[in-house]
């Protein structure tokens, strides 16, 4: 299967108090289109930084990030924003819904940016899929954590992304809600044929993917296929 994400010799360093801090050190891997992947590792291992770089939220110090055959390092921040809008979906630990927009409006934003038509109908359809068709006019503050994450899911899939990045998607949810959300993520992913890259320290969740990349001290220490792979 063709790779949708290619990471070569990726490093990220920061200057802090006159010292160079290496957060990611020479990372190399590829992600096949349509596959499900988990990046796991202890706190401070660099997994979120890696996700940020893969999704074009930040630029690397050295190395190449190629998403959908586009070298993100050669793009400006605005061009990367457009890549995110066209090819990427996001799910965050703390949901990251726009607080002043209703649930429906939150789902509509990526489509509005693309200037697409029938936005409202498509967004309502997505909300329906996550079981929130009757909560479209509610603001995030009026929704529970689980509901907010479901709105976030609907928004992530609204632009029919090629790849979905999820950062600890169940980190702020209770066990029961987590289970529902995880099921939704995998179901929607399967239905849309999207590639999934999720960052988690929940090994049970990671085990539901086809591949687990283990990261420690900024280095990729293992790349294992799971039973689903």
């Amino acid at each position: 299967m063709e790779a949708i994400l290619n990471i070569s010799n990726l490093s990220k360093t920061y200057q802090s108090a006159g010292r160079t801090l290496t957060v990611l050190d020479n990372i190399n891997f590829s992600v096949a289109a349509g596959s499900t992947n988990a990046i796991v590792g202890p706190s401070g291992s660099g997994k979120t930084t890696l996700l940020g770089l893969c999704a074009g939220l930040d630029s690397s110090t050295t190395g190449i990030v190629e998403l959908n055959n586009i070298n993100l390092g050669k793009l400006s921040e605005d061009q990367r924003a457009q890549v995110r809008n066209q090819y990427i979906g996001f799910i965050f630990q703390n949901f990251q819904l726009l607080p002043t927009l209703t649930a429906l409006e939150n789902v509509m934003v990526p489509l509005e940016l693309r200037g697409e038509k029938n936005i409202k109908a498509r967004s309502l359809e997505l909300l329906d899929k996550v079981g929130l068709s009757d909560r479209g006019h509610h603001y995030p503050a009026q929704l529970s954590g689980g509901e907010q994450q479901r709105v976030s899911l609907a928004r992530a899939f609204s632009n029919s992304p090629r790849i979905l990045f999820a950062d600890e998607p169940t980190g702020n949810l209770d066990a029961e809600t987590s289970e529902k959300v995880v099921k939704l993520i995998f179901d929607l992913n399967k239905e849309a044929g999207t590639t999934l890259v999720l960052v988690t320290h929940d090994l049970e969740l990671a085990a539901k993917t086809q591949r687990i990349l283990r990261i420690k001290g900024g280095k990729l220490i293992a790349d294992d296929k799971t039973d689903n792979g």
């Binding site: 063709e2 289109a33 586009i70 002043t100 927009l101 940016l113 029919s160 239905e191």
Partner: peptide
């Protein structure tokens, strides 16, 4: 949802600014 085919990196990086949408977002955000 429909499965999309890969377009091998062909991307229009010059999306036009949608002025009415900016006004709508400004209104919503406020």
């Amino acid at each position: 949802m429909t499965k999309r085919t890969m377009d091998n990196g062909a991307m229009d990086t010059k999306r036009k600014i949608n002025i009415p949408w900016l006004f709508e977002m400004a209104w919503r955000d406020s």
